[in-house]
């Protein structure tokens, strides 16, 4: 609901991964491949990005040993990617996009295209760039403890509702 569809997150992602030199080189001299994409439908505007599944379908599909879980984050080592698209096909969310690199070629000189997806800014000291640049703070990094706390809060609230309903029932019977 906070997302206003401005796509600053997509630019932040590219700047974080490519580095600030992209503003200094020739405009055709860098790759612009955001790892998340803002989707706009009738009902919603929101970025879609990798959910770092516990049992990643992409990792199961990859025959090149390019996808691994590192510190709880699902990472694609694109140097190993043969571009077979199996991971992109496997991801139920479409969070993996095939992209053509301007900065690298295959050994035979042909253009190199690899699988591209959110890596939680693993090698950035400040963490995910997207949530840092979002003007409405619509993005949030969800950690395991957040999930635990959410479950705890929701369950307590559910218990509270049940107690309230029970009390009302008793009052109705009593009256």
């Amino acid at each position: 609901m906070l997302c206003i569809g401005c796509r600053t997150c997509m630019i932040g992602c590219v700047v974080a991964h490519e580095g600030k030199h992209i503003f200094e080189v020739d405009p055709d001299g860098y790759d612009f491949h955001p790892k998340l994409k803002v989707i706009k439908t009738f009902n919603v505007s929101v970025p879609v990005q990798c959910k770092h599944c516990e049992a990643p379908a992409c990792m199961a599909a990859c025959k090149s040993d390019a996808i691994h879980i590192v510190n709880g984050t699902v990472i694609i080592r694109t140097e190993k990617c043969i571009g077979c698209k199996s991971c992109a096909e496997a991801c139920p969310f479409g969070a993996i996009q095939m992209v053509t690199l301007g900065s690298a070629r295959n050994a035979d000189g042909a253009p190199r295209s690899v699988a591209n997806k959110c890596d939680l800014c693993q090698d950035q000291p400040k963490g995910p760039a997207c949530l840092r640049v979002c003007p409405t703070a619509a993005l949030r990094l969800v950690k395991e403890e957040d999930l635990g706390q959410t479950l705890k809060n929701k369950r307590l609230a559910t218990l509270g509702l049940a107690l309230g309903a029970e009390a009302q029932k008793q009052a109705a019977i009593g009256a």
């Binding site: 569809g5 401005c6 796509r7 997509m10 630019i11 590219v14 992209i22 612009f32």
Partner: peptide, 19 residues
């Protein structure tokens, strides 16, 4: 949102142009 008005300025911003 990604470009401002007639783009005299934002048309010269490369990442905005990438979008």
């Amino acid at each position: 949102v990604g470009h401002y008005s007639v783009r005299t300025m934002s048309g010269n911003c490369r990442t905005l142009r990438n979008l």
